[in-house]
């Protein structure tokens, strides 16, 4: 490793931010992929993978993904819930690779819920 200066310290800190957003909290958006047995059968794993790719590509540090159990609407799986801090959560259903990418760009990054895929807006938060 090269000799560090104060600037380097700051850079390292910045680089580690994503990891510590995960551990310390303080994230802006949280995307929950519902992974019950039904969700997985319907392709929730693929949704998760696509989502992770998107986040990675976009290089955002303040978005976390998590999983939860069945959302109770098995017919509409795979589903995700997107929660932007201080905004009502939005549930999306019948997702595909393409849809989740769109949701990620529009809603998570852009801040505008993608109403055409949304099932409910403003259900319970999980913060």
């Amino acid at each position: 490793m090269a000799r560090l200066t104060l600037d380097d310290l700051k850079k390292i800190k910045e680089k580690q931010k994503a990891t510590f957003t995960l551990r310390e909290g303080g994230y802006r958006a949280k995307i929950t992929v519902h992974m019950g047995t039904c969700g997985i059968a319907a392709g929730a794993r693929e949704i998760m993978t696509a989502l992770m790719d998107e986040i990675s590509e976009a290089g955002v540090e303040d978005v976390i993904t998590t999983t939860s159990g069945c959302a109770g609407l098995c017919a509409r799986e795979p589903m995700v819930t997107v929660e932007i801090l201080n905004k009502p959560p939005v549930k999306y259903g019948d997702l595909t690779d393409k849809k989740i990418k769109e949701i990620f760009r529009e809603h998570v990054l852009g801040g505008n819920p993608v109403e055409k895929y949304a099932l409910v807006i403003g259900s319970e938060t999980t913060y």
């Binding site: 994503a18 990891t19 995960l22 551990r23 992770m52 986040i55 990675s56 290089g59 998590t66 999983t67």
Partner: peptide, 8 residues
């Protein structure tokens, strides 16, 4: 860049 959704 490696990106993880969970840290254990």
């Amino acid at each position: 860049m490696e990106k993880y959704r969970a840290n254990l």
